[in-house]
Every structure is written in C-alpha cells, then in structure tokens.
Nucleic acid binder design. Structure first.
Lengths: 114, 114
DNA sequence: AGATTATATAACTACATGGTTAAATGCAAT
DNA sequence: ATTGCATTTAACCATGTAGTTATATAATCT
C-alpha cells in the first residue's frame, strides 16, 4: 500500500513506534520484539502486520522464526510530507510576522495622533 | 495532549492532511475549509476537533465564524521523531552495508579456494 | 512419527472513528 | 424580538482497532 494514511496510522501507536525504534537498532524476531511489552504475542503479531501493511517493515522466515527488518522508504515519505508542510508554514509565518511588525510600526506612529 | 499518538493519529487521514496543507497557506474559516470536500459540515467540524486535540491547530471565534490557524509545534515533534529514527536506521544501514561489503570481499577471495 | 518451539489465525469483546441527518447554539442583521 | 448564517452537538450506523484466550500451522529436534 504505502499510503500516507497507512504510514501515519501505523505510527499512531506507542507500541508500534517502540517496535520501530527497536528495529532501528537492528533486525529482531517476533519474540524478541514482544519481550519488552506487557501484551500477548498475538497482539504483537498484529502490530507487526500493521507495520508490514504500512510498508514500514518486512518479515522474513528464517528457520522457525520470523525476522523483522525496518524498511524506511515509507518513513521517508511521511517525513517528507511533514517537512514540506512545516516549510510552507514557516514561510507563511515569516510573512505574517513581517506583516504584523509592519502593522505594529504603523500603530505606534498612529498612536501619537490619537 | 500533544502526544505523538494524537499527532500521528491526526495525520493519518487524507482530509485532515489536506486541511493542514490548506492552513499552511493561511488561516481559514470552517466553511472555507469544508468547501473542497465532498463530506458534510459536521464531519469537517469533527476533523477539526481531532486536529485541535492533537494540538495541530487553534480555533478562534471571530464574529459568527470560527477561524482556524496552524500550530506547528506538534508537527515539529512528529517530524523530529521520524527524523531521529531515520537517522538511527541510516547509521545502522551504513554499518550493515559495510559489513556486507566486507563479507562479499571475503567470499570472493574464498571462492577461489573451493 | 511425535514433541517442542515460534508465530499466526480465529472468535470474541470493547471501544474508537468516520460518516450521515436532524436539532441546538451563538452571533448578527433587520 | 425574530430571522438568518456559521458552526457544533446529538443520535445513529457501519467499520476498524486493540486486546484477550484458544487453536492451528510450520519448522526443528529427538
């Protein structure tokens, strides 16, 4: 899929973000990923499925385990969206700021003529 | 609130992202924000509430309208989280890449000794 | 083949989300 | 004070999400 809806949706959960942070340190099996959390293994399994659907990780069968790896292209897409909007906003803010300063200037000169 | 759960959750919807993109161009009333979309006004109103809860916008009463403005600190928080993880991943990837290259080198020298 | 381990799927519950239409609020204009 | 406009809230429906326990699958070990 790799839609922004899926990507951001996948990121909107503390456990899933923690899993990604863990995977940023290197690949891990499902059991290893589940260990730190106080939820059942099936719950983790479904979190991983969400991350996989969002194209944020890949799962690869290795022996009787499944090893998960980060797949950060989707992260980049999400990051790009945010950064682009932040940049637009900052430009806008700069203009607004300049405008307000201009107003301020006018007002303080007007203030004397009240 | 301003939790990452809320922030990413708010971003996980096409309409809400479009609203934010629109607001990056400047403030707008609810009606103006609703216009481009093929959904009812109450639906938009609730999207705005989600964005407000996520601390991504502020709504200010002005005459009989409500004007919305972007409030990008939360966007920055989300962006920072992604960027930090991307950076970790990229370092990791570089090390892995080097390691694989090293393996590759060994293997090709070994290849002759088979 | 049978037991063990690692993980996934099924069936279920509870709650959140996104949409609708209809009614309520708040402010403005007459 | 009444009408009208902009927006929100209420009530409802359908679907999605997060968790559980119990069961199934798949690979490994004996």
């Amino acid at each position: 899929m790799h839609s922004l809806d899926h990507t951001f949706g996948a990121l909107a959960d503390t456990i899933r973000r923690a899993i990604l942070a863990r995977l940023a340190l290197g690949e891990a099996t499902v059991g290893e990923l589940a260990k730190p959390f106080d939820v059942s293994l099936p719950a983790i399994s479904r979190h991983l499925k969400v991350l996989e659907t969002a194209d944020l990780i890949v799962r690869e069968k290795r022996a009787q385990q499944r090893v998960c790896r980060l797949k950060p292209e989707a992260l980049k897409t999400a990051s790009d969206w945010i950064e682009q909007n932040r940049r637009m906003w900052e430009e806008r803010f700069d203009r607004l700021d300049a405008y307000l300063r201009e107003l301020q200037g006018k007002e303080s000169t007007d203030a004397g003529n009240k």
